[in-house]
Design a protein around this nucleic acid. Structure first.
Lengths: 362, 362
DNA sequence: GCTAGGATTGAGACCGGACTCACAGCGGGG
DNA sequence: CCCCGCTGTGAGTCCGGTCTCAATCCTAGC
């Protein structure tokens, strides 16, 4: 503790100016590369800056340009590989365009999201990418727009906002995949999601998540074409932790007229569902068919490999960042990119036992 | 485009002060909750602030407090669940302590890391958490310390720095797990890692990653106890993309005296290794035993479930954030937390074919 | 030789808070 | 009754850049 300089001040333009024997204004011009500066001055200033290893204070710069070159990203959970990958897409594009990313995790909690938005607003980020915890409760997102800050939604849409949403439209894919299951002979298809609702699912219920709404819409359409219906018996929401997912899985598989196929709304749910199936001593796809949303490398390694609905998650993040940065820079919005999901048939969907055994009769 | 106010200015203390009919200084005091303010003034100011929905500009505040309440996190790849989970640990703790996180991805590229550090330094973050791409090339990290900013290392140590490193000491666990493989009868154990080196591995080689160094150290110790050695034949580094991992896997399994056990250095490598094994028509653990570093939920779902070396990744991130924040706040460092890895024996390690068949003779 | 007009240059305002300093008002002790 | 000291208060500086504005230089054109 010899030289305890209490607050070692950084080298500033003024210091550089003094060293170069020019005015602060001239030094700033030379360093900032604007205005008119003679070669002589420029050289002296740059040399002095080098000598003092001057680095501009971005904070100060942000303060009077009003631009922080930072974007705020608010997601439910980066631990979830879905968001991990999307975040990677965002940061890759952001970095390329010279933007930094402040990441806030909300745990899918609305209050935390409201808070996150406020914090980022206070920090004067240049724009927002939000994966809204709720598609309905969007007051805080409106506040972003009132503050005239660019906002792009990720993964889910939100009501009452005039904001671009970079998400895969799942309605069609949900329809297709349900038809695929129906085509394999399934009539009892369970859908398990973590989305929170006030009570059990009833047909036509308004949900907080546009993603789930779309999925159920597509699924319902396919079912109705076969004279079937979405019911609270098989559409199981509020699947919170691993234990509740396990319970729900047991319920739908052990009920009198059990599900013969289970659709997991994301990879985290899938893990618990599959474990529950294994615990029941059932095998996929002989006893139960299984389908999940999102594709990750490990789904190819299970036995059997899993049939999944793949989403271009990385691209979605990248597209969101691109769209946001265009907005920030005042360029006109690019046409919405194609973000199509696809059904990847591997080995976890087969014919239901009952149908395989029974005489097909209608 | 009716009211195109070109740059809608934010409400400032001055505005509030005017509305409350007090001086800027008084308004600042009332809002900032410092200094002496009469009840009357305080009330008027707070009411005016509320009325105008005043929000302090954190940028401005940061500028003269010198604190940004932001920490910079530099990792190799958030897409990798290992870092995803660690990042979650970091952000959880940071949020609780009122800090935000700027996340930069380096793709394990040193130049990108150097750049990231510079950017964060320019942004005047309060502290750094870095998972260094190189344990040897640390000039940029030293610069952080020269700038008197707190720095904590994540996952890996780095030379020439007086910085706390929050990482699991893998030497012992590598030793233990190798003994476990040896105990099962394996004599040819391959180790596959993505770490980049100038040439093939030779015993005693200095590596860029303290993590890998530790693993090989522990592994080597166990091998030598059995009269065996680490060799470039079975220690395979530079396993870059999926294709090269696949090639390497084929090589070690198809060589004249092939590996009977393969250790994958992380989960991403593991995926490609297992696929390669499956492609060769070999089965785990009958034909090849398999062990990987890091434990993720999906490892329980493969057939067989994978034997892994689990690390408390979330805790590591949380501990790093805690340590950093203590430093930032000038509190004395907490004792280093226990971050122990553990060997989780599931089903991917068995006896090697040769030994199972042959008469054990020594 | 003189002047218009562009190139240079320095002083200083400004961004939006935090904070120093000088000063007024007021109550109590000597 | 006077001085001391504490609370309240406003003016103004500072943080570290950007940027405006007016002054000065310089050179070509007449």
């Amino acid at each position: 503790m010899s030289s305890n300089s209490p607050r070692r001040r950084d080298v500033t333009v003024a210091d550089v100016a003094k060293a170069a024997q020019v005015s602060k204004a001239q030094a700033a011009r030379a360093l900032g590369n604007y205005g008119a500066v003679s070669d002589d001055v420029r050289e002296r200033v740059l040399a002095a800056a080098e000598e003092l290893s001057y680095r501009p204070n971005e904070l100060a710069r942000s303060m009077n340009t009003g631009k922080s070159h930072t974007i705020g990203v608010v997601v439910g959970d980066i631990e979830n590989p879905h968001f991990g990958l999307a975040t990677r897409g965002i940061t890759d594009i952001a970095k390329k365009a010279g933007f930094n990313v402040i990441l806030i995790n909300t745990d899918e909690d609305l209050a935390a999201e409201v808070d996150a938005v406020q914090v980022l607003l206070d920090k004067r980020v240049d724009g927002f990418i939000v994966a809204p915890a709720s598609s309905l409760n969007t007051g805080h997102l409106q506040r972003i727009q009132e503050a005239r800050r660019p906002l792009v939604l990720l993964d889910r849409a939100a009501e009452g906002l005039d904001a671009q949403a970079l998400a895969v439209d799942m309605t069609d894919m949900a329809y297709e995949s349900t038809r695929y299951l129906l085509g394999a002979g399934h009539r009892r298809i369970a859908f398990i999601s973590t989305i929170k609702t006030d009570g059990p699912y009833v047909d036509g219920m308004v949900l907080d998540s546009s993603q789930i709404t779309e999925r159920l819409e597509g699924m319902g359409r396919a079912l109705r074409e076969e004279g079937l219906e979405l019911s609270g018996e098989l559409v199981r929401l509020n699947a919170g932790d691993a234990a509740s997912i396990r319970n729900i899985t047991r319920e739908v598989l052990l009920m009198p007229d059990p599900a013969t196929a289970v659709v997991a709304s994301d990879s985290l749910i899938a893990l618990s569902v599959i474990e529950a199936i294994q615990e029941l001593g059932l095998s996929i796809p002989d006893d139960v068919s299984f389908l999940m949303y999102d594709d990750f490398a490990w789904t190819r390694l299970t036995t059997p490999p899993l049939t999944v609905i793949a989403q271009p998650v990385y691209d979605m993040g990248a597209a969101a960042a691109n769209a946001l940065i265009r907005q920030i820079e005042g360029r006109k919005p690019a046409p919405a990119p194609e973000l199509a999901a696809s059904l990847i048939k591997r080995g976890s969907v087969g014919a239901p036992r009952a149908v395989a055994a029974a005489v097909p009769e209608g």
